[in-house]
Design a protein around this nucleic acid. Structure first.
Length: 822
RNA sequence: GCCGGAGUGGUGGAAUGGGUAGACACCAGGGACUUAAAAUCCCUUGCACCAAAAGGUGCGUGCCGGUUCGAGUCCGGCCUCCGGCACCA
């Protein structure tokens, strides 16, 4: 019996499409399930990693469909951005042409995989009907003061000739091209994501179905720390010098202060000539150092004395004011109070420059620290000493008291700081959504009126990167009149980071054709939140934070109801080559799913992927992975249809166990066990074990022993249903060969008969002193006494017991017996 | 350095609330069918040892200890690998 996938697959794909099997309604009529897979870059045809991502989503979508849910399972293209633009330039094509052409190719490939995407909702982020709303969201952010311009040091990629967000810089290199980034002083657009830092951390607790490790990564990235800001005073100028500290309880141990070299504070110090020269020389030297050199935490600390002093507001003590490389300009206030006795970095620095070390915390009431013998700082909490009226206070209480004192005296305040920086979203590239702002010399920054959106990206030949925005050299784009005063004005020449486009696509899917709104609130209310979101962990600190931020913002301005966009998140493992290496074009080790699909069929490829490892684990892919599963499908599973007896049983019927022969009863119980196992496995996305359960069912199914025709047919039909989410074409074909008229995906997911998941007899393990010594077969749920009688009759057990005394008997029903002997 | 996660046969992996470790596969070996091969089917397959055999014994989930009648699973201490953060005051 031949499984002719090349004929079967297109046949069903065609029928499913004609029957609109995957088309979701505007509002779900019953229980809904929003199944989302990550937005795809159309920078090349799809590869094994995409394939894996999408088949997992597909299996879930189909399973939920069969469970009777209304399923929304959309797909779309993250079509703006560097990868697409770079690919286009390499081929000497316009990004617009190349992107759309490539989407065509990739879409065709995807359609061949039979994935249940609702293509009627496809979204392409570089099309004006989409980026109109990306711009609309920008305007909303701008109106709330959450989109703003500021100047400062930014990361610049010399290769891509554009600025990058913090999240796009990995190990001081451009995440995309690997070029070392440099710092530049530029005025750029930012989204004030820091405003949401607290909620972005706290709301993680509302997400029990997100992976723990991902939540930890996000928490650390946002990096919340609680402490206090304390105002020191610069002697002579009298200027306030606020510093952030998590340890106000060490305030009396401050022996110097340090300012970041880049900090503008340094310029305002009015240094004497000698010190000014030294400080400037130091600042220049620091500028020359590479980012890597500077951030190597193990590296030497160095700095230069400014000749100035700062006054500690608690004890009026004057301490030296230094400029030091280890202080970061971008965190806190760009200056620190240094407590060498209780901070390791300050300790190293003080040792190097012979600055006093003053102990103000003792670990407890009995031990004392001696600065002369310390070889590192003591950084734990302890008892405050040498601290005036605070002496004797301990730990967090000490922190609280010192902070409250500052607030009372107006010399400081409690403060929470974050590592998270605002999100730099402007790019000096062509291929992105134009920033909808007009620069007017009279009115300043004026947002493009909403009824004039979108600001169309002109299809110019002037798109190559050159270090400044290509659009700046397109006068017909740049020159406009100011919407407020009507005077001559200029458009903003920058485009938005693609991560902006991909921060709200999940909402556009809900209402993809809406001309008047980004999406309808009612439809969003009906479909949101996303029930399961599947994608790689690579987006942990980027997209997966950004899209949570957008959700919260849109909720705040009344467009959404939930704090969080996605209830559950699944990170699938990577697909590597046989040697465990990442597949990449440059290495030439990319395995395309297309070749495999053409050779063995989509469903075999899918099952091979599912069977080889659980979803979250990485997979070393080779074609051998499909060998076992292919044999199973071709020789065992597909041929089940020829054993079908056309009795057409009611799929909801539960047999009475007494009415069945022994063999039939066993087969019936086996079936119900399998339904239960596969259902449980689907709930936790463990497709590998679902497949092995079906293999066992098939192995144990012996048609010549089954007397009851309805039972026989029930087994076959339910096995097909259980297989359907993973191997849709195969299952649909088998379903119809058994004479079923409607789609297997419209049939209800099998329920199991609760009275028939256990056999009447169980095999119980017999242990002596915890060691397995034999087995005994007894009736299910037997009482302790009967079981022990059987155990004691066992010859092998007798041998092990010998003359010894049984001092304890343990009986776990239906599992084991343990005899403790002496 | 800090924070997560993981270490199970030759390989991919099972074991879902402490309860028969190795399900289901791959690979390998043996056999059947065949003129032969492929395909297919059947058997063996954690390691070591004892036995002619039936079978039995010991060891075994990274290492060392603990709790328990019983530990892959819980606790403590290490080792290795992977991921994240990395001068964040």
């Amino acid at each position: 019996m031949k499984y002719d996938f090349s004929q079967i697959e297109p046949k069903w794909q065609d029928i499913w499409s004609k029957d609109s099997l995957y088309t979701a309604g505007d509002r779900p009529a019953k229980d809904k399930f929003y199944m989302l897979v990550m937005f795809a870059y159309p920078s090349g045809d799809i590869h094994m990693g995409h394939f894996r991502n999408y088949i997992v989503g597909d299996a879930v979508a189909r399973y939920q469909m069969m469970r009777g849910k209304d399923v929304l399972h959309p797909f779309g293209w993250d079509a703006f951005g560097l990868p697409a633009e770079r690919a286009a330039i390499q081929r000497d094509l316009h990004p617009d042409d190349w992107t759309h052409r490539n989407i065509e190719i990739s879409r065709k490939t995807l359609m061949k995989t039979g994935i249940s995407f609702d293509w009627s909702r496809e979204v392409i982020s570089c099309n004006p009907d989409y980026y109109k709303w990306t711009q609309w969201i920008f305007v909303q952010l701008f109106k709330k003061g959450l989109a703003y311009r500021k100047s400062g040091q930014v990361n610049w990629c010399p290769e891509d000739q554009t600025v990058l967000a913090n999240e796009q810089v990995v190990d001081s290199k451009c995440e995309r091209c690997g070029t070392s980034v440099v710092k530049r002083d530029l005025t750029q657009w930012y989204f004030k994501i820091t405003e949401y830092a607290n909620r972005l951390i706290d709301d993680l607790d509302k997400l029990p179905d997100w992976p723990e490790n991902l939540k930890t990564i996000q928490k650390e990235w946002i990096g919340r720390s609680r402490g206090a800001e304390i105002d020191f005073i610069i002697k002579d100028t009298g200027e306030k010098l606020p510093v952030f500290t998590t340890r106000p309880d060490t305030i009396y141990g401050v022996t110097y202060m340090a300012i970041a070299p880049e900090s503008p504070l340094v310029d305002r110090l009015s240094l004497d000539r000698e010190h000014r020269e030294e400080v400037e020389a130091y600042r220049n030297a620091v500028q020359m150092r590479s980012e890597i050199e500077r951030t190597a935490a193990t590296g030497e600390k160095d700095g230069v004395f400014t000749g100035k002093y700062a006054i500690n507001p608690y004890n009026r003590e004057e301490v030296q004011l230094w400029v030091a490389d280890y202080v970061l300009a971008g965190y806190g206030t760009g200056a620190v109070m240094a407590v060498p006795a209780h901070d390791s970095r300050d300790f190293l620095f003080a040792k190097k420059y012979d600055i006093p070390i003053k102990v103000v915390i003792h670990p407890d009431h009995f031990s004392k620290l001696d600065p002369a013998t310390m070889d590192d700082a003591y950084t734990g909490y302890g008892v405050m000493v040498n601290s005036d009226l605070f002496d004797g206070l301990e730990g967090e209480e000490a922190v609280r008291e010192v902070t409250e004192y500052a607030e009372r005296k107006g010399i400081g305040r409690g403060k929470i700081n974050y590592k998270l920086r605002d999100w730099l979203i402007s790019r000096q590239r062509y291929w992105g959504a134009p920033i909808p702002i007009i620069h007017c010399s009279k009115c300043g920054l004026v947002p493009v009126p909403e009824d004039e959106l979108p600001v169309l990206l002109p299809k110019t030949d002037n798109f190559k990167p050159k270090g400044r925005s290509p659009l700046a050299d397109v006068p017909e784009f740049m020159d406009v009149t100011c919407p407020q005063c009507g005077g001559e004005a200029q458009r903003d020449p920058d485009t938005m980071d693609t991560f902006v486009c991909s921060s709200w696509y999940y909402l556009r899917y809900i209402d993809p054709k809406n001309d008047c709104l980004p999406f309808s609130k009612e439809k969003a209310k009906a479909w949101m939140p996303i029930d399961l979101y599947i994608g790689g962990i690579t987006h942990a600190t980027g997209h997966l934070i950004y899209f949570r931020f957008f959700q919260k913002f849109l909720k705040d301005i009344g467009w959404l109801e939930d704090d969080e966009p996605a209830k559950a998140l699944c990170n699938h493992g990577m697909v590597l080559d046989v040697n465990g290496e990442v597949m990449s074009k440059s290495k030439g080790n990319v395995v395309s799913p297309v070749v495999l699909m053409e050779k063995r069929g989509v469903d075999i490829a899918r099952l091979g992927m599912f069977f080889t490892a659980p979803t979250e684990r990485e997979v070393l892919w080779s074609d051998e992975v499909v060998v076992g599963i292919e044999k199973f499908i071709l020789n065992r599973f597909f041929p089940l249809v020829k054993d079908f007896r056309k009795s057409y049983p009611d799929l909801k019927f539960n047999f009475k166990l007494d009415a069945l022969t022994n063999d039939d009863r066993r087969a019936y119980i086996r079936l119900n066990q399998t339904v239960k196992r596969v259902t449980d496995d689907f709930e936790r996305l463990q497709f590998n074990t679902a497949i092995s359960a079906l293999m066992e069912l098939t192995r144990d199914y012996k048609p010549d022993k089954i007397r009851n025709d309805q039972l026989n047919d029930l087994i076959i039909l339910k096995a097909i249903q259980l297989m359907a989410p993973m191997a849709p074409h195969l299952a649909e074909e088998m379903w119809h060969r058994c004479g079923m008229q409607t789609s297997v995906f419209r049939a209800q997911w099998p329920a199991y008969d609760r009275n028939a998941v256990n056999f009447e007899t169980v095999v119980i393990a017999i242990q002596v002193n915890g060691k397995l010594r034999g087995e005994v077969s007894v009736a299910r749920d037997s009482e302790q006494d009967e079981v022990f009688t059987a155990v004691m009759a066992n010859e092998r057990i007798k041998g092990h017991l010998g003359e010894k005394e049984v001092i304890k008997k343990i009986y776990i029903k239906n599992r084991l017996v343990n005899l403790v002997v002496k």
